[in-house]
């Protein structure tokens, strides 16, 4: 329990260790810890921001979905309208076409009728001439009586 040179030795050792700690131990450890703290804080902030972004994105998605639905409904609507229109148009066109075909057919029928009538008329003229010839028993001058026969035929 004597006080002796150990006291001085310990003071020197103490100073040495404190200086070592101050120079090579404390600053790097504190720096690393501060850096880690910063990193964690950044990470938390980023997570917060990400969740906020997610929320925004979800809102946006819902918005877009709604928009798309409205748009789709509009498209379907207009498509329906257009389809109706086309059907309507087609119907009209068909009617017109039918009308046209009918008219043409009628015209043809008429033509055919006229032609048949012509033919018939000719044949009737010839028949009536022949009949008249037979009835009269004499040859009729065909050219002389043609006008008469024509007249008869046209009365048919």
């Amino acid at each position: 329990m004597n006080i002796n040179l150990t006291l001085i030795g310990q003071m020197l050792a103490f100073a040495g260790f404190v200086l070592f700690c101050m120079k090579y131990v404390w600053p790097p450890i504190l720096a690393a810890m501060a850096e880690r703290e910063q990193k964690i804080a950044d990470g938390l902030a980023a997570a917060d921001r990400a969740s906020h972004d997610l929320e925004l994105a979800q809102e946006k998605a819902v918005e877009r979905l709604k928009e798309a639905k409205t748009e789709a409904a509009g498209i379907v609507d207009s498509a329906n309208k257009r389809a109706n229109q086309i059907v309507e148009e087609a119907k009209d066109a068909a009617l017109v076409e039918a009308e046209r075909v009918k008219a043409a057919a009628q015209a043809e029928i008429e033509q055919e009728t006229n032609r048949a009538r012509e033919t018939l008329r000719g044949q009737v003229a010839a028949l009536s001439l022949a009949g008249a010839e037979k009835v009269l028993g004499a040859e009729i001058d065909q050219s002389a009586h043609n006008a008469l026969v024509e007249k008869l035929a046209s009365e048919l």
Partner: peptide, 22 residues
């Protein structure tokens, strides 16, 4: 005393070397 002081230096110098933000 000095030996234990060196143990302290060795331990914490090691920490200072290894310490990183990971």
């Amino acid at each position: 005393s000095i030996g234990l002081g060196l143990v302290f230096c060795w331990l914490f110098r090691g920490l200072a070397r290894k310490a990183e933000s990971g």
